[in-house]
């Protein structure tokens, strides 16, 4: 069983939130060895999609994790118009929602460079290996450089297996 992260992603998918899995969880899905303690997604930051996101998380006590007092997530059609990112803590784990991924672009672009994976009967979009490499290279943190190296090996292996 894949556990809490899958449960969290399933909540989003079941509420028809438009998102692409990015970051460490996407890297792990491709085969990278690092463990991540949160889920990063790139999602459509339209008010409609953000309200769907809020509905998806309604039973999980979502709070803004970057605020000192862990302010409860309370979006309205008006106040979410200016949002670019959301950094949340939920009962199923930490969820960082980005409207823009460095090295990739906004949600629409992320969808174009994503691929579908199936986990326990659920289908999700994740950033493909090339896009993940670009985004990690752009971040340029030491741990991202390790991920880039691993992704390059995994890409070569996959190309080899498919040829």
């Amino acid at each position: 069983m894949i556990g809490r992260f899958l449960e969290l992603l399933t909540c989003l998918a079941d509420s028809e939130v438009d998102f692409v899995i990015i970051g460490g969880f996407a890297s792990a899905a491709h085969g990278c060895t690092n463990v991540t303690q949160d889920i990063d997604i790139c999602c459509d930051f339209s008010p409609t999609n953000l309200m769907r996101l809020q509905k998806a998380l309604a039973d999980l006590n979502p709070v803004h994790r970057m605020t000192s007092k862990k302010v409860k997530l309370e979006l309205t059609e008006d106040n979410c118009k200016s949002l670019k990112n959301l950094y949340l803590d939920t009962e199923l784990g930490q969820l960082d929602c980005l409207g823009y991924v460095k090295g990739v672009g906004g949600y629409r672009q992320a969808v174009k460079v994503s691929e579908k994976i199936e986990i326990e009967g659920k289908v999700f979009n994740i950033l493909n290996i090339d896009a993940l490499i670009e985004s990690k290279k752009t971040m340029n943190r030491p741990r991202d450089l390790q991920t880039v190296i691993e992704l390059k090996v995994l890409k070569d292996k996959r190309n080899d297996d498919n040829s």
Binding site: A28, A29, T33, E118, E120
Partner: peptide, 22 residues
């Protein structure tokens, strides 16, 4: 570990990942 992960499906990799996280 890396090459072993390469031979697994995404679901299998994420199961392993969850075990490590647990």
């Amino acid at each position: 570990m890396l090459m072993d992960n390469a031979d697994r499906t995404p679901a299998e990799r994420l199961r392993r990942h969850q075990s490590a996280l647990n």
